[in-house]
Write a protein that binds this DNA or RNA. Structure first.
Lengths: 247, 247
DNA sequence: TTTTGCGGTTGACATGGATCAAGCTAATTC
DNA sequence: GAATTAGCTTGATCCATGTCAACCGCAAAA
């Protein structure tokens, strides 16, 4: 192999690691930054990490030092209660941040587990804090990201507190669809990365209930399910289900 | 009235408005700041606002410009769904912050309603952002406060997703008890500021279920209830209820 | 003081989702 | 390619909580 080829490969790799060349920059932390600012962020976000399917990115109780931006792949986060019960608190995909809950006690409060082979950018939190004191846009955006997480959680609380099983699942599918769309994928057709049990845990339901709801949706022509492959056939129908099925 | 008395009163009032003289400073935003830093925060947090019982501090949809620190009183926040369903997303007491959800879209996403006559300090958010670029401790603390809110929400999701009615109520009472304790009140005896319906909405239960759970706790000698007056008789008993009643 | 009404309690009954159980499907391992 | 297994589907039954309804009690209004 001629040496210049190797050099090119290396340099390509370096370029690909930078925020400024990441195709997720409009979804992720760099949103709204100028070129100059983004290059300063590049220095910070240099560590990339591969996580195999099933592996932990971090565990509850571990010391917190970085937040993570998902570059590719799919994660779930879950919380464990002392008595063994656990709950999935979220599913995260490319361009989303993991670890914000750890800031509060400087210790992670949940587990983050890859649901497929994934790649994340580690962002050392103290350095992010310094940089966001210098780059106002970064500070503002970071605050918005944290706040958005709070709003998202309120949505989940709403779902768990007031919706019935089928409404919850409809809301879940519509949410996935919308997030896939934002990433340039089909809004109507996707593979679920999580099991029925994980969906159930997230939605406060048992896996059997999730399965039955999928079957019902299929019978009613709202979706086509084949294991983890989902095609949404009637988005307005799913939306109607959510608003008109009030008790 | 001699003029110097009036002057004294005014100056007292001014002093009382400042963070540096607020007895909540160890719970609230100023936590960890030096005297000099706290005085700089004082300038920012100058606007006090009284909210009568039943009145809105802000409403979902309103433009966001400030977060609020509760100086005295008690609030609830709730989210409304299009179809009329609503859910209480939290109860807030003195020293806690309201409005963090509004940062994300620069618009409040929930209603904040006083459950008793209350007083809040308005903190203009853009100014808080500037100041936290200058005062590192303030920046760090603010990040922790936001993160703590995320962790709290995960706790509620856990509660709504995996706990049964009596466990939820036990968790709720223990949480109140602990927060009252942190404010120097009795851990065992307090008045609820909210109705059974509001508790139910927060816990994802109907008011009848809440009422029955209260009665059951009383029968079992865990608490003494008389309307809104609660005395916790057996804190370990309530804790046991939460961990050993797993399905 | 009496009236009114909201919030709370309690009972009887209904039901959505949990639980238990069996069988199926499609990966993964051998 | 067969065997194994994790994940999924479906049916039968059960139970916690919701629903509906009656009544109680305290606080505000008259």
């Amino acid at each position: 192999m001629p040496p210049n080829t190797a050099a090119k490969e290396i340099s390509l790799k370096v370029i690909k690691t930078a925020c400024s060349n990441c195709n997720l920059r409009e979804l992720c932390l760099p949103l709204g930054l100028s070129d100059e600012e983004m290059h300063r962020l590049d220095d910070l976000v240099s560590t990339r990490k591969r996580i195999k399917r099933g592996d932990y990115l971090y565990r509850a109780g571990q010391e917190f030092d970085s937040i993570y931006a998902i570059r590719s792949g799919f994660f779930k986060t879950d919380v464990l209660l002392e008595d063994g019960r656990d709950q999935v608190t979220g599913f995260q995909m490319a361009g989303e941040l993991l670890g914000l809950d750890g800031i509060s006690a400087e210790r992670h409060t949940c587990n983050a587990i890859a649901l497929e082979d994934s790649e994340v950018c580690a962002i050392p939190f103290p350095r992010l804090q310094s940089l966001s004191r210098e780059i106002v846009t970064l500070q503002h955006h970071f605050h918005k990201v944290m706040s958005r997480e709070i709003v998202r959680d309120h949505g989940v609380m709403m779902l768990l507190g007031t919706m019935r099983a089928e409404e919850r699942l409809a809301a879940f599918l519509l949410n996935l669809s919308q997030r896939f769309t934002a990433r340039g994928f089909s809004p109507a057709e996707f593979y679920l990365r999580m099991t029925r049990e994980e969906i159930g845990s997230y939605l406060g339901l048992k896996l059997e209930t999730v399965s039955r709801a999928f079957s019902r949706f299929q019978e009613e022509g709202l979706i086509a399910v084949q294991q983890k492959h989902i095609r949404i056939l009637d988005i307005p129908g799913l939306k109607r289900l959510m608003t008109h099925h009030a008790p």
